[in-house]
Measured scan of single mutants.
Amino acid sequence: MAEAPPRRLGLGPPPGDAPRAELVALTAVQSEQGEAGGGGSPRRLGLLGSPLPPGAPLPGPGSGSGSACGQRSSAAHKRYRRLQNWVYNVLERPRGWAFVYHVFIFLLVFSCLVLSVLSTIQEHQELANECLLILEFVMIVVFGLEYIVRVWSAGCCCRYRGWQGRFRFARKPFCVIDFIVFVASVAVIAAGTQGNIFATSALRSMRFLQILRMVRMDRRGGTWKLLGSVVYAHSKELITAWYIGFLVLIFASFLVYLAEKDANSDFSSYADSLWWGTITLTTIGYGDKTPHTWLGRVLAAGFALLGISFFALPAGILGSGFALKVQEQHRQKHFEKRRMPAANLIQAAWRLYSTDMSRAYLTATWYYYDSILPSFRELALLFEHVQRARNGGLRPLEVRRAPVPDGAPSRYPPVATCHRPGSTSFCPGESSRMGIKDRIRMGSSQRRTGPSKQHLAPPTMPTSPSSEQVGEATSPTKVQKSWSFNDRTRFRASLRLKPRTSAEDAPSEEVA
């Protein structure tokens, strides 16, 4: 009796068929016929556990003709996506030579605008209408194809895939403007070719909807975003200037109206006075309405000098805001240009540092100066060695804690006790272990408590650290204090090793 083939788990290929790579489910599931010992083939499952149809090819690079078809379809799909992405970037994010197409579109729109203006002049109306009709045909074809291509290429973005995504893309403001202008152009052409009475009025009214094509030149909205950011950044200043200017306008108009309503027919109503105030304070000055009385002229002159300053403030605020924003954008561009080279330089330096163990090129690091100058660790070890030599091999803490019996001779020589300023008595072995921070803190506390006492003391002649007598400086308080830590004499004296002298005989010792 033939044995059933062993159940295979995992992703390994079956024996005897090495080139074939078959994806098997996580659990080997066989058909009921196979479990019962029949000759049925096992049921194939996909990666998600769903059964595959009987005629479906197995996924994998070596699955025969199905694999070749899959490779061809995958390559075609990649080319399709690449083309779609390229078209989308050309239309929505132009760079380099892609601006040539947008310059061509701008020339078409500008020519249409010029011809629309010439069509309103009686001398050039006939020729402009003929040229404009031909140009409209060209623009309908160009913009119609462009609109379709834009909607198709938007599928390269995830949020615009599918018919719902394309509809979302078509609802964008600039796409809506394109659609309105396209419909208006078709209506103008249809009305112009019919030759009816309505054609002339339709051409004159709907052609100027094509002015909206100038708005579509900035599809990404960079200028509007820049203007919005400047207004938002200086909103408080703008609101303040406009508010005060509006108050000056209504008060000036009302007072001039009261002064001129009886003697001047131009100011017969408050609305006429508001019109005069707006034209005057905005420095336009049509001259259609002028005050005639001396009181009205004085009020107009005073409020004009006051109001023009507030009406001119928004222009200066926006101008300075634009300058600052442009400078910030230039700085951001320079930062973006330098970020990648800086990151590459840091990575290269780290690779060199991690692979080169000698690091002989590091001549400006802490390790280099640590090898030249005595390190703080060596100074600490030197302090501890000196203290243990004086205390008979014991550390200062051990000397303080060691009990001394009554009447027993002390094995240590008597030492002079010292007192730290602002604290109780402490171990004499710690007097010379006072660090730089303690010395600086002690000097600052003395300056806070009594700076007036220092200038009363007789001035001391500054001497070099080499000429100081070591026996005289029994305490860190003898170090000359200065008002600034930048004094080199104080810094050098604080680094010197001060020996400890006994109370009975204080021989001067120098520590090399």
Rank of each mutant, 00 (worst) to 15 (best):
S320T: 15
V230M: 00
D178N: 01
E237Q: 01
A76T: 12
A2S: 04
V298I: 15
G62S: 07
L274I: 03
G64C: 12
E35Q: 10
V186A: 08
M214L: 15
I308M: 03
C131W: 09
G285R: 00
E92Q: 09
D17V: 08
S309C: 02
P314S: 01
N196D: 07
V298L: 12
F335L: 11
T278A: 03
Y88C: 02
W294C: 11
S31C: 12
F322Y: 00
Q332R: 09
K325T: 15
A75V: 11
I197F: 10
Y160N: 02
R213S: 11
L26R: 05
L91R: 01
D178V: 02
S201C: 01
W275G: 00
G195A: 06
C112S: 04
G192D: 09
Y101C: 02
P13A: 08
C112G: 08
Y286D: 00
L281S: 00
D178E: 15
D262A: 00
V29G: 05
T240N: 03
V215L: 10
L227V: 15
E22K: 06
N344S: 05
L107F: 04
R7L: 13
G302A: 10
S111T: 05
V326L: 08
K225T: 12
G70C: 10
D17A: 14
F182C: 11
D17G: 14
A199T: 08
I346N: 01
V231A: 02
G321C: 00
I239N: 02
R93G: 12
E136V: 03
M214R: 00
I211F: 03
A2P: 09
R95S: 13
G70S: 09
L83R: 02
W86R: 03
R220P: 02
Y270F: 07
D17Y: 03
Q164L: 04
S63T: 10
V183G: 05
A343S: 08
W97L: 14
G319R: 00
G70A: 14
Y80D: 11
E136A: 14
A199V: 07
C156R: 07
T200P: 03
L318V: 01
F174C: 04
A170V: 13
R7P: 04
A68D: 12
H292P: 00
A98D: 12
F311L: 05
V149F: 12
G144R: 00
S235N: 04
G221R: 01
P173A: 04
A252D: 02
G37C: 09
L306Q: 02
L52P: 06
H330Q: 02
A4T: 05
H124Q: 08
G39V: 03
Q84H: 01
H124Y: 09
R297K: 15
L274V: 01
I346L: 11
R339K: 10
E260A: 01
H292Q: 08
H234L: 00
L247R: 01
E130V: 06
V117M: 12
W224L: 09
S74L: 15
R297W: 00
Q71P: 15
A315G: 12
F169L: 02
E136Q: 15
G285S: 00
P54R: 12
R220H: 12
S185T: 10
G34R: 14
L345R: 06
A233T: 14
L133R: 04
C131S: 06
A342G: 03
G40V: 04
L115Q: 10
S269P: 01
F179S: 04
A263G: 04
P53S: 12
L23V: 05
Q210P: 15
I284S: 01
R219L: 15
P94T: 02
A76P: 12
S320A: 00
L9I: 13
A233V: 12
T280S: 03
G49D: 04
P291R: 00
R93W: 14
R213G: 03
G55A: 13
S185L: 09
G195S: 12
H77R: 06
F208L: 09
C156W: 10
F335I: 11
T283S: 00
L318Q: 00
G39R: 03
T27A: 10
Q30H: 07
G155A: 03
G285V: 00
G40D: 05
R150P: 01
E22V: 06
G195D: 04
D178A: 08
I279M: 02
F311V: 03
I239T: 06
V109L: 05
V248A: 04
S74P: 13
G321V: 00
V248L: 03
T193A: 07
G60R: 11
T282P: 00
R204C: 12
L47R: 10
R20G: 14
R81H: 08
P6T: 09
V298F: 09
G49A: 04
P13T: 04
G16V: 08
W276C: 00
P42Q: 08
V186L: 07
L83M: 14
H77Y: 06
F167Y: 10
R204L: 03
F182L: 06
G222S: 10
I134L: 11
G195C: 07
H330L: 09
I346M: 14
R216L: 14
G287D: 00
A25P: 09
I250L: 05
D262E: 08
V188F: 05
G285C: 00
M206T: 09
K172M: 15
G12V: 13
L52V: 12
L58V: 12
A28D: 03
Y88F: 08
F174I: 06
K261M: 02
A202E: 03
F267I: 02
G64D: 08
H77P: 07
E260G: 01
S50C: 02
F167V: 13
R171S: 14
R297S: 01
V149L: 15
R159P: 15
G64A: 14
I105K: 00
I148M: 06
R159G: 15
T223N: 02
R43H: 15
T27M: 06
M139T: 09
A259S: 03
P14R: 15
P13S: 07
S111C: 08
G16A: 11
A199P: 01
Y88N: 14
T278S: 03
W242C: 15
P59R: 08
E22G: 03
G55V: 11
K289E: 01
S253P: 00
V117E: 02
V186G: 02
Y286S: 01
P61R: 06
V231F: 04
Y270D: 00
H234P: 00
R79H: 12
T193S: 04
G162R: 02
S63A: 05
Q30K: 11
G60E: 05
S265T: 04
M1L: 03
L281F: 04
V103F: 05
P341L: 08
L9H: 04
I211M: 12
D272N: 03
P53Q: 14
F143I: 09
Q347P: 01
S185A: 08
P291A: 00
G10D: 03
P19A: 10
T282A: 02
V142L: 14
P54Q: 12
R79P: 10
Q71R: 14
N85D: 15
E336G: 01
Q347H: 07
Q332H: 02
A300S: 08
L274F: 01
F267V: 01
V114A: 15
F246Y: 00
E146G: 00
L249F: 02
V109I: 15
L23R: 08
S253Y: 00
R79G: 14
F254Y: 04
V215E: 01
H334L: 01
G302D: 00
V231G: 01
R219P: 15
L249P: 00
E328D: 08
S268C: 01
G277A: 05
N196I: 02
V114E: 11
K172E: 11
M206I: 03
C112R: 03
F169V: 00
I346V: 03
G38V: 04
Y160D: 01
C156S: 15
F137S: 09
A191T: 02
R44H: 08
S73Y: 10
P314R: 01
F303L: 02
